[in-house]
Every structure is written in structure tokens, then in C-alpha cells.
Design a protein around this nucleic acid. Structure first.
Lengths: 132, 132
DNA sequence: ATGCGTGCAAACGATTTGCAGCCGG
DNA sequence: CCGGCTGCAAATCGTTTGCACGCAT
């Protein structure tokens, strides 16, 4: 069950921590290469999937369908406010929303409720950069 | 600007209305074939995209990344509670959630806020079918 | 007529997988 | 030593696009 600790796995986790914000597997792959710790793209995907299964990283889908990964501070359920340009992320939670979601769903006779609640926007920095 | 009315576009819209719930382009393509009104898959995609651009259909991403389309009753902003098995859909709106979303985002200095709020569950029928 | 719409097949881009060799425990 | 891990390339899969032809306006 415990994941074997290889050079590439370590590198993936470390780089993920460094980047801090949501990144795609490809961006991560490139960051690894730049960092000198080159790792095969397939391996990056496998590592990320393993981490996701172990709830060590959060995964979410960008508007274009690409998967983005991030090591979040809190492991409990929460949501995100993400900059669609630079990936800058703010963790948020909405107790109100949680309650609302399950109530609505239950009222319609639905089970195994799961909700997708993500906020996308343009962060202050990117707005400034774009304005220039 | 006005979309040209062809046999295939009419067929796509009609079939979409018939299906009522969220369907993938491929499911729709198959439904068209079954209906006798065969339409090229590429055309189905093009028609759906045009409809989406014109806000005639709602689009959302399934958990596996596939795009699902649906002709919604209301054209105003709203969200959905979708059965992950049969696609059965219930339109919902959460005035509370809307307000919460923009408030949180603005507080972090984010602009052009957009939110993804979808509820996924198993509808009563599918739960019964699975239990059998 | 005129040019948007269509079909088909090739092109795409992200992700997955088969397989032979490697290396961590 | 052994089985999980890796790399590479080939395979998937949904979706997009190039191109020659047809049809709605």
C-alpha cells in the first residue's frame, strides 16, 4: 500500500510543493526538467494519480478540460478560488454552500451527492499585467 | 450571424429536446442515427458548439472530462443536479450561493469571477436499478 | 450565384498503457 | 531477490480541422 520512494516520486512532490498553485501535469513535467530532475511524462502522470488517490493532492479540471494538481494545506473538504491565468490559488470553504448542496440534492431524491464548486477569476497581478 | 437552417441542425435540436437530459456529443450522434436522421459526428460537434455560443444549450463537463449538452428550460443563470448514471437533470438556482461566490472572490482581489457549481448524485431510479 | 454547412478522414492534445529493464525494500 | 516503478513509444479517446462538394438563402 505504501508508495515506494523513488527519486522521481520525491522530485514530483517537492516540485509540487515549490509551485504551490494548481499546475497541469505537463507544466509540472517541464518544471522538473528545468529543475534538472528530469522525469518521464508518463511517470509524472502516474505519480500524480497515486498522490490523488492517496488524497495527497487536489485535482480539478480547468475550463478547457485539462487536469490541474496542487498540494493543499488543508486535507479536509474545501474549495478553491483560482486565477485562470497564473493558477494562483486561494483555499476557501463555504459551510453555507455545503449545507445548501446536500439539502437541495436530498430534496430531489438523489444519493451519493458530490458537488463541484470552484471559483475562477483573474487575480490582481494578472489583471495589472493584462492592462499594460 | 443567424445560423443557417439545415436538415442536420434541425435534427440536432429536435433530438436534444427529446432527450431532455444532459447527453454527450457521441450519445447524441448515436440517437440521431437511431432516429434515422443520420448526421456526421463532426457536424454534431459543430452544431452543439454553435448552439452553446448562442446560449441555446448548456454545457458542462462530466467527471471524466467529457462534455455534456442540454437544452435548458430557463436561459438565465442557473445550476444543475445531475444523475451521474442516467444524466437525469434537475435545474436549480442558489441565490445564496451566487452572492457568496462573488463576495469571497472580490475579497481576494479577483476579477471576472465565474463559478462552477454542479451537483452530482445518483437518482432514485438508478439507485434502485443498482440495488437489484 | 455565394458562401456557410457537411462529411470524411487526418490531425490533435491530453492522458493511458504495454513491455522490457531497473532499483528500492 | 522480487515486484513495483520507470521510460519510451504506441495506443486511446474525445474533439477539432482541412478540404472538396452540396445546399440554404
Amino acid at each position: 500500500m505504501a508508495a515506494r520512494m523513488t527519486r522521481q516520486r520525491t522530485a514530483v512532490v517537492e516540485t509540487l510543493d515549490e509551485l504551490a498553485d494548481f499546475r497541469s501535469a505537463q507544466q509540472l513535467h517541464e518544471a522538473l526538467r528545468a529543475r534538472g530532475e528530469s522525469v518521464g511524462l508518463a511517470t509524472v502522470y502516474r505519480a500524480l494519480q497515486a498522490l490523488a488517490d492517496a488524497s495527497e493532492v487536489d485535482v480539478l479540471r480547468a475550463e478547457d478540460g485539462e487536469s490541474l494538481y496542487r498540494r493543499c494545506a488543508r486535507s479536509e473538504h474545501h474549495h478553491h478560488l483560482v486565477c485562470r491565468f497564473c493558477g494562483r490559488t486561494v483555499e476557501i470553504d463555504g459551510p453555507t454552500v455545503e449545507a445548501w448542496a446536500s439539502k437541495v440534492a436530498a430534496a430531489q431524491g438523489f444519493d451519493d451527492i458530490e458537488h463541484t464548486i470552484e471559483l475562477w477569476g483573474t487575480c490582481a497581478d494578472c489583471r495589472a499585467a493584462a492592462a499594460k
